[in-house]
Design a protein around this nucleic acid. Structure first.
Lengths: 138, 138
DNA sequence: AGCCAGCTTTACGTTTACGTAAACTTTAAC
DNA sequence: GTTAAAGTTTACGTAAACGTAAAGCTGGCT
């Protein structure tokens, strides 16, 4: 069922757990451009991949505009002039730096969660009269 | 100069590169609660740490509401009942899962950037008549 | 005393990313 | 062939995160 060659809008909406409204909105913003059969949108496997990328970007806190920019990066790689290509490399480096920053940020927040969890378990232990040992972490 | 014990709103605004409007807005949203000298806000080192945490959260795409929730996690760890504490542990686990997902997402996007960069360099090489070798990555 | 820079509140405006409703067409099922 | 389900456009509404402008206090300098 996953090897379909085309998808309807509601199939994709169900699969990615979003509304058809959102999918159409992404099209409005130039992130998707599905085929049409009459009025009806027909999504290809490529379109589906795009949607997956969109969701990924959103989970990383990218705006739709930024995601569109990333798509352009990808699409224009083949067709650019030299100046264009060097510009793209710059932008790629830029995005890479952002991701590196995010990795650092995640590490810090993880430490904070560790700390909060430790305090939490300690407080619990105090409450329950330390009958149970500290539970092993996965 | 970094070892100040208090800060004015514009000092913090300058340091973190945001507007005083934003800082006051964060206070509105319950993320900060600086002292006052008369009308004027006086920020402590703790407040500054909070601001740093806010910026971190934002870079990870967290909403202000989510950040406030994380603050609550941290603050209420000491004072909760057992049920409360277990709930907090659940929320911590939840946030941890989100971060794990983000790590995966970042890894994927990095791969995509790798791919885009490779295509880009290839195209450049083709254009320049491969006089130069592939430049070494840092 | 006068003034300016920096602080304050109040309040309306703006952008992003959709939600929601209305009104209409098209496709699949019975 | 009609009816229900799923699709479409158009358009107004909304929550979040500020921007921006107005109008007023306030502490220090000259």
């Amino acid at each position: 069922m996953n090897n379909q060659t085309t998808y309807s809008i509601s199939e994709l909406a169900t699969e990615f757990d979003l509304t058809t409204r959102s999918i159409r909105f992404y099209e409005d913003q130039g992130l998707l451009s599905p085929q049409r059969r009459g009025q009806t949108r027909i999504y290809s496997r490529q379109d589906r991949v795009r949607l997956k990328l969109i969701m990924r970007g959103k989970r990383l806190g990218f705006s739709l505009a930024e995601i569109r920019e990333l798509f352009s990066l990808w699409d224009e790689t083949a067709s650019g002039s030299e100046k264009q290509l060097r510009l793209l490399l710059d932008k790629i480096a830029e995005k890479r730096a952002e991701l590196d920053q995010q990795l650092k940020d995640i590490a810090m927040v993880q430490l904070e969660l560790d700390s909060a969890e430790a305090r939490c378990r300690e407080a619990l232990n105090d409450l329950t009269g330390q009958k149970q040992q500290i539970s092993a972490d996965s």
